[in-house]
Amino acid sequence: GSLMYASIFGNVSAIIQRLYSGTARYHTQMLRVREFIRFHQIPNPLRQRLEEYFQHAWSYTNGIDMNAVLKGFPECLQADICLHLNRSLLQHCKPFRGATKGCLRALAMKFKTTHAPPGDTLVHAGDLLTALYFISRGSIEILRGDVVVAILGKNDIFGEPLNLYARPGKSNGDVRALTYCDLHKIHRDDLLEVLDMYPEFSDHFWSSLEITFNLRDTNMIPGSPGSTELEGGFSRQRKRKLSFRRRTDKDTEQPGEVSALGPGRAGAGPSSRGRPGGPWGESPSSGPSSPESSEDEGPGRSSSPLRLVPFSSPRPPGEPPGGEPLMEDCEKSSDTCNPLSGAFSGVSNIFSFWGDSRGRQYQELPRCPAPTPSLLNIPLSSPGRRPRGDVESRLDALQRQLNRLETRLSADMATVLQLLQRQMTLVPPAYSAVTTPGPGPTSTSPLLPVSPLPTLTLDSLSQVSQFMACEELPPGAPELPQEGPTRRLSLPGQLGALTSQPLHRHGSDPGS
């Protein structure tokens, strides 16, 4: 009898404990919600809404976190579960008819179910419309201010047509639940991603989709105040780019002037030289400038040598048109050559190039014969006009050509200096018209024969001689050997007369 009593008592207590286990969990969670309300000092109306929603959600799901349970299964099984949970929507909604099984599984994985109690606001006026909503159960109302403009029910759709707008718009009203509602919502990016994977279904979906109420604000059109608020930074940046392009296009129409201050000032006329910023005076940081632009901040801005204009002085008759350009485009679109090309026009420029290279940067340069637009006047290309890779490749080509020119210049200078040193070592320090008596009659020769300089066969020296023939050397430049009979510069000019005159010897006659 005691054994029977113990078994009955144990079973009854276990049954009672299981009955009250759900209630215990409910009270535990309710205590957490109330502690949250007390800690954050939530006001009474919002506090009442929180408690009511918790009670309804507990009775609806029995305190089970559906998302946590669903995430515990593998992905393939999750797709089947989501397809079952959203079967009513996918079967009865017209846009989803005719979709393949794979497309429906992908869509079912992207849908999220939302449960809303009465009085809950789903979308506020001015919120971004980031999702498309399908009503599965219940009814909602749409308000503009305090005026109800629409009441939607089961199988209705609200949001915005995503295929017509590249960016999400703003809501033009509040969406509030009238009863307990079940909503299926899919985010904008998720829907577009699935439709991109199934393009054959995309056309059918957009053609058959009928949005019951379009929440997009109709005033959000390009150029409206609301649109400016939504895309303020983007609009200002776009206007700045367009104004920069218009100014650079105007600059290219004036090829007669070359400016070292950047493309923003290349198009300024002579009357605007004294102004601080020219056409860019209202925004000094709008356009890029070269490193020399920092010198323009000092006094005497109108007389600054940074602004270059072609000189009108005539060229000498024998002067060549100019050196070879550094870039391939210089032959086609440049009416002034790079300062480095002028360094190779003569030997005198070679000796004085490194010492006063900055001073020569603004000297007169030889002109190319074609009066085409200036290379320095070409505006900086924006990322939309020329690819970045093209600019980098041009810079690399320019750097390689500069290296080759520097190597060639160093070799030419070394060769010229070597020839000058050899000339100085071969010439005796001094010569006299009267020579010392020699031991015999073989001493009648006034000077030792001097062998002429070897013929220069280097390509670089031939180019130097060509430049010497075309360029007029300055007075202080050293002379180079030329073709024809060679003669030492330090010898007297009348050596031929010395050989014809008898030598005057000093000596005593033994017979006297």
Results as ranks from 00 to 15, higher is better:
residue 321 P to N: 13
residue 303 S to E: 10
residue 387 P to K: 14
residue 199 P to L: 01
residue 230 L to I: 14
residue 148 V to W: 01
residue 441 P to T: 07
residue 327 M to H: 13
residue 183 L to K: 01
residue 463 Q to M: 13
residue 436 T to P: 11
residue 478 P to Q: 06
residue 423 Q to H: 07
residue 260 A to R: 09
residue 339 P to L: 11
residue 259 S to M: 05
residue 262 G to C: 10
residue 166 A to Q: 08
residue 305 P to D: 15
residue 173 G to C: 14
residue 500 S to A: 08
residue 290 S to M: 13
residue 427 V to M: 01
residue 238 R to L: 11
residue 130 T to E: 11
residue 426 L to C: 05
residue 254 Q to V: 07
residue 194 V to R: 02
residue 180 Y to L: 05
residue 407 T to A: 06
residue 284 P to G: 06
residue 253 E to D: 11
residue 288 P to S: 07
residue 302 S to A: 09
residue 147 V to R: 10
residue 374 S to N: 01
residue 323 G to K: 09
residue 399 Q to K: 15
residue 146 D to Q: 08
residue 271 S to P: 14
residue 325 P to T: 01
residue 190 D to T: 03
residue 442 T to P: 15
residue 141 E to T: 11
residue 199 P to Q: 05
residue 504 H to E: 06
residue 340 L to R: 08
residue 305 P to Y: 13
residue 397 A to G: 12
residue 383 P to A: 10
residue 225 P to Y: 08
residue 467 F to E: 08
residue 321 P to E: 10
residue 207 S to C: 12
residue 352 S to V: 02
residue 470 C to R: 14
residue 398 L to S: 03
residue 172 N to G: 10
residue 322 G to S: 07
residue 387 P to N: 08
residue 287 G to Q: 08
residue 201 F to S: 10
residue 191 L to P: 03
residue 465 S to I: 08
residue 360 R to I: 12
residue 230 L to W: 10
residue 361 Q to G: 08
residue 216 R to G: 09
residue 229 E to W: 13
residue 340 L to Q: 14
residue 379 P to L: 03
residue 263 P to A: 09
residue 129 L to W: 01
residue 509 D to C: 11
residue 174 D to W: 07
residue 244 F to M: 12
residue 346 G to E: 08
residue 170 K to V: 08
residue 226 G to K: 10
residue 377 N to F: 03
residue 412 D to S: 05
residue 336 T to L: 07
residue 485 P to L: 15
residue 434 V to G: 11
residue 492 P to S: 05
residue 168 P to H: 03
residue 215 L to H: 01
residue 213 F to P: 01
residue 350 I to W: 06
residue 329 D to N: 08
residue 369 P to L: 09
residue 179 T to P: 02
residue 506 H to G: 13
residue 440 G to N: 04
residue 425 T to D: 05
residue 495 L to H: 11
residue 428 P to M: 06
residue 235 S to T: 11
residue 287 G to A: 13
residue 422 R to N: 09
residue 174 D to T: 09
residue 445 S to K: 06
residue 464 V to W: 13
residue 480 L to K: 11
residue 166 A to C: 12
residue 357 S to L: 09
residue 183 L to I: 09
residue 312 S to L: 11
residue 189 D to V: 08
residue 458 L to Y: 14
residue 211 I to G: 03
residue 232 G to V: 10
residue 468 M to T: 12
residue 317 P to A: 15
residue 175 V to E: 02
residue 165 Y to N: 10
residue 477 A to I: 12
residue 230 L to A: 11
residue 148 V to A: 08
residue 289 S to N: 12
residue 184 H to A: 08
residue 270 P to N: 12
residue 317 P to D: 11
residue 208 S to K: 15
residue 369 P to C: 12
residue 229 E to G: 09
residue 296 D to M: 11
residue 434 V to Q: 13
residue 248 T to R: 09
residue 443 S to T: 12
residue 270 P to S: 14
residue 157 I to W: 11
residue 505 R to T: 07
residue 378 I to H: 13
residue 496 G to Q: 13
residue 205 F to L: 06
residue 424 M to I: 09
residue 386 R to V: 06
residue 281 G to Q: 14
residue 466 Q to W: 03
residue 168 P to Q: 08
residue 209 L to I: 12
residue 450 V to F: 08
residue 411 A to C: 05
residue 242 L to Q: 15
